[in-house]
Amino acid sequence: MQLHNVKTQFLLPARFNSRDTVSINYRRFMLYLRDDIAAAIEGDIVEVRFLWNDEAIAQNHSVRLNSFPGQTLSMLELIEDRIEQLPCTVVVCETSKSACSVAIVTPTPQLIHKMINEMICPNKFTLPVIYDHNCSAQTFITQRLSSIETEDI
């Protein structure tokens, strides 16, 4: 069902589409790069997963996970600030009950590894975990979107 004439101050970056799944015992908010932009980007994916610490999990629970969209935007802003000088682009940024994750497409994954290793872990999270994915931005987005339907989040 489409919503018309939506008035909101909560503005998402124009480069991204979004998905938000709210169920009885899980929630997942995801920003993903528009297809016309993702198609033009080359490189491999480095995914950085920031797991929530116990205190943050309790806070998230207290607001019934309704802070996820805002937290996703904050994480996107933080990472984009860090990679501003690097040849890379955030492809997916998403928040679930377990983690806040950022997937970055880059021709030089080692630069992302170095940047993450040097950054101070943001509040609310434990040390980040890094995953390398040998796939394109479009393929990664497709995988993440299909996982919304099947994954136990």
Binding site: M1, L3, F10, D20, N66
Partner: peptide
């Protein structure tokens, strides 16, 4: 109700209204 809830989610400014 769906339209209203969707707008609340889009606005993200009132958790009580969402719930």
């Amino acid at each position: 109700a769906m339209r209203s809830l969707g707008e609340q989610y889009a606005r993200q400014d009132d958790i009580k209204a969402i719930e």
